[in-house]
Each structure stands twice: as C-alpha cells, then as structure tokens.
C-alpha cells in the first residue's frame, strides 16, 4: 500500500534517486569482488596448467 502524499513526486523521486545511488554503491563492489575472484581463479588454473605442460615436456625431453 503506497501512501498518498502532498508533493508526492518530489518525495518519491528523492527516495528513488537515493535508492539508486545506494544500490549502485552496494552492488558494484559485490560484482567486482566476484569478478576478481573468478579472474584470479582462472589465472591460477592457467598457471597450474602451464606448469604441468612444462613439466611433461621436460620429462619427455629427458626420456
């Protein structure tokens, strides 16, 4: 149930703008954190993969 206010447009637009800024400030870093963890995880898996390939090449050369 939405209350009926005098100056309703002014009141609701203020609350909506404040909410939009807060959501942008709250959700932005949350998504960034997720993206960072994902990117670091990918980098680490890639590094491990490259390490394994290098190791198997080295073993093959010596065999």
């Amino acid at each position: 149930m939405i209350p009926e206010f005098s100056y309703a447009n002014y009141v609701w637009s203020s609350y909506a703008i404040a909410m939009a800024v807060v959501l942008w400030q709250a959700l932005g870093p949350m998504f960034k954190h997720r993206r960072l963890l994902w990117q670091l995880r990918e980098d680490q898996l890639l590094e491990a993969d490259q390490g394994n390939t290098a190791k198997s090449n080295h073993t093959r050369e010596h065999a």
Partner: peptide, 8 residues
C-alpha cells in the same frame, strides 16, 4: 508548513 515534502 511543508506538508509531506519534509519526508525528504
């Protein structure tokens, strides 16, 4: 005086 506008 300000009606509901003061809720801002």
């Amino acid at each position: 005086q300000q009606g509901d506008s003061y809720r801002i």
